[in-house]
């Protein structure tokens, strides 16, 4: 390349510096500053910020709602992993290995909820759960199970489990496609060899498909963990706002309430630090447990 060193540096700066400045101002600085805020008691007006050291963290450990919010978050993580992985694995295997003519139709339909707004999904499901008009209760009545009908989102016991279904409903398509990508990369010769050895479809699934698609499953599980811990509060905020009686508060919705409804910004930041630490620890632990020697045949 015929250009002076100075020109080269100038071009490099043109490419990198403005973007990095924006990234630093609107992503890095707020994250680091969040850690700093957690050491203050602050209601928003600049004069009233008071340095209180680790007091917010002490409050965090003594706050009765915090353990419940953590449990709710992990309840959603676990139930979503189970629900999404079982269904999307089944659908992925069915659509790749069963020679179903209308497979593209299912792919297009199943994926669509993935690009719907959480607000739309949440409101739609609020109506599905609506005690008098909703599909769930009407369906139960139709089946003659009147005793099972209830105000799903209004019950402390059932509100949180009721949030799982919309999340699974909205998530299946993406993970199904990721697994389908993995399955279609598996060489046909393995199945042919298994066929000759007399392995049935079920055995082929456990011995060939599952081990060879494990990398995609691992990524899917980690992705569900990350997106749930970083985003479950959105559907909570739309559908229940943490209620009834805190029964569905997750860490993020509790942070929102403390910081932006009650104006305890310092304490909110402390909850944010907890979310950051817990999600990093969870991802590291899961990566450790799910490491598994790459299978090669």
């Amino acid at each position: 390349m015929v250009q002076s060193k100075k020109q080269r540096y100038l071009f490099m700066a043109f490419c990198l510096v403005p973007t990095f400045l924006m990234f630093a101002i609107f992503t890095l600085y707020p994250l680091v500053n969040g850690l700093y805020y957690s050491l203050f008691q602050w209601s928003g007006s600049s004069s009233a910020a008071e340095f209180i050291g680790l007091e917010n963290y002490r409050k965090l450990f003594n706050d009765d709602i915090i353990p419940a919010t953590i449990w709710h978050d992990y309840f959603l993580v676990i139930t979503k992993i189970i629900g999404i992985m079982i269904l999307s694995t089944f659908f992925a295997v069915a659509l790749t290995q069963m020679r179903i003519k209308e497979a593209p139709f299912y792919r297009i339909v199943f994926f669509f909820p993935n690009i719907m707004s959480v607000v739309v999904i949440g409101i739609l499901w609020m109506f599905i759960y609506n005690p008098s008009l909703g599909l769930v209760n009407s369906g139960l009545e139709f089946l003659g199970l009147e005793g099972w009908t209830r105000s799903w989102l209004g019950s402390e016991r059932w509100a949180l489990p009721s949030l799982v279904l919309p999340s699974v409903w909205a998530g299946i398509g993406l993970f199904m496609l990721m697994l389908m990508g993995g399955i279609s990369n598996i060489s046909k010769s393995y199945y042919e060899a298994a066929e000759i050895d007399g392995a049935n479809g079920w055995q082929q699934f456990w011995k060939i498909t599952l081990p060879l698609v494990w990398p995609q499953m691992k990524i899917s599980i980690l992705y569900i963990i990350i997106t749930t811990l970083n985003g479950s509060f959105i559907i909570v905020q739309v559908m229940t706002k943490g209620g009834p009686n805190n029964a569905t508060h997750v860490m993020g919705s509790y942070l929102y309430e403390e910081a932006f409804v009650k104006y305890n910004f310092g304490y909110g930041a402390t909850i944010g630090v907890m979310i950051l630490v817990l999600s990093l620890i969870t991802v590291l632990i899961m990566q450790y447990f799910m490491r598994r020697e790459k299978v090669e045949y």
Partner: peptide, 12 residues
């Protein structure tokens, strides 16, 4: 998780 950053971002 960007939630933590949203509080400082609000004031920024």
């Amino acid at each position: 998780p960007m939630v933590l950053g949203w509080i400082p971002l609000f004031f920024l």
